[in-house]
Computed example of a mutant assay.
Amino acid sequence: MVTLDRKDLAKYPFLKESQSYIGTISSSLEQYLQSPGGKHAIKEASTTMQCALSFNGRELPPLPDIPPDAESITNIIASYPVSRIIVSCAQDRVLIDRLVRYQSWLVFAFLQDESSDVKRFIRKSIGLPETGTEISVTDYIPVASRMQEERWRLINRVVIRGKVRVAPLEYDEIVRERLRYVMARNLPIKVPSSICELLQPEVDNIKSEWQKHILEEFGKVEESAFPPCMQAILGAIAGQGHLTHMARFAISAFLHNIGMENTRIIELYGNVQNFDLRKTMYQVEHISGRGGTSTEYISPQCATMRTHGICIHPDSLCQKINHPLTYYKQKKREISKKNLKSTSEQKESRQILDKAGKKKSESGGDSSNQIPSRADGGNKDEQGT
């Protein structure tokens, strides 16, 4: 039997024991959120969201300090459900994914120095075997689908009687991705409109920060960095070709995700047969979250594109990524490096030419230096006659 102290409850707020700890702090959620403790929990949740938006998902996040006093720990634990309420009110799948990714990685960071007893307890709490040696195929697939490294592909694993072998050092990673899956499975939750109205300033602030982050992450739209699938769809639009509903959704969401204005996206459809401005405006506004539902969609993953037959002309970079947005970021980075190298080479060439010209000037080879000599010589000839 594992006994969790208050610090453990703050480190792992998804546990039912953590939620039981704060379950009786107020008679209603709305009343609690308006209380001093609730306001602190909202502030903690906002901090969590800020960290989630900037987290890259490739290295351990810094561990937050956990104060020893009961009131601070209560606020930290309460911030976990509050953050889930905020992203549910935002109705944005991207924000949900960012939140659960960060929270699962935070647990992963805490687990690095955790006791074996607590590790086993956490594994059991999220439906995994307590001993880290194997996992059922049905539990493994949702976890491995989020892993990009080849070693996680089912074809590269040892599977015996429906169980996937897992090395002890890999098991914390399994816990992380399983937790990410479990956290996301029940989101968004249904939140009363009165609660969403109360949290609207936080929702608006997070959406605004996310838009700034998108601009910083993607910068100016670079069409030459588009993945082959998106280039093919744009080619079909320009050539008045037939577009499936999924192709329309994919390209509209992709262009919105990288920061293109809705008016520009709508203009692209002008060449499509039977173009309907009102219908196109509705669809694009709906995808971008401005059509009344507040749900902002993200472009489909590569696996979804393949399923719908719109993964067209994949190149070598496509083999290394699993999302068109990832392709775009990497390709744009490559283009920037090439442009920077070209600029550097041009600058170096100019410097070499400048140096050569300077040497020629100093050696007397410049015709501008010879003119006064000839003039002086001419004057001497005139004086001698």
Rank of each mutant, 00 (worst) to 15 (best):
L198Y: 01
C89G: 13
R374W: 13
G270E: 09
I214V: 15
V100D: 02
R157N: 04
S136M: 12
S88W: 10
V100Y: 04
L63Q: 11
I310L: 15
T48N: 07
Q231V: 06
P168S: 14
L317K: 11
K7D: 14
Y297S: 01
H308L: 09
P228Y: 05
Y102T: 02
N186T: 10
S136H: 07
K190L: 06
V203P: 02
A247R: 11
Q370A: 13
C229S: 11
Q330N: 05
S28W: 04
Q351F: 10
E114R: 12
T131Q: 15
S54A: 15
K358F: 12
R101S: 08
D92E: 13
S294A: 14
S373V: 08
N379G: 14
D172T: 07
T24A: 14
V82S: 08
G259A: 06
V164R: 03
T138A: 15
C229V: 01
G241S: 09
S373D: 09
K331A: 12
S26C: 06
S344F: 13
N271L: 12
S54E: 14
T263Q: 04
I298Q: 10
L198D: 00
V175I: 13
N322Y: 09
Q91H: 05
Q91Y: 09
Q319A: 15
P62T: 07
R290D: 10
Y12A: 02
Q383S: 14
L33S: 05
Q31A: 12
T3C: 04
S363G: 00
G57M: 10
Y21T: 00
I155Q: 06
V182W: 09
E285S: 14
I321A: 00
F14K: 01
T295E: 13
N271E: 04
I25D: 02
A52E: 03
T293D: 10
C302D: 03
R374K: 01
K212Y: 08
D65K: 12
F55S: 09
E362N: 07
I66A: 05
A144S: 09
S136W: 03
I42K: 00
G377L: 12
P13K: 06
V107D: 08
R290Y: 04
E71R: 07
N322S: 15
S18Y: 01
G57R: 11
F249T: 05
S224Q: 09
V82P: 01
E44W: 01
I141W: 03
V82I: 08
S83C: 13
R374Y: 15
T133K: 13
V118Y: 09
K220L: 12
L99R: 07
G259S: 06
Q148P: 04
N186G: 02
L317R: 10
L63G: 05
T343M: 09
D5H: 08
Q351L: 07
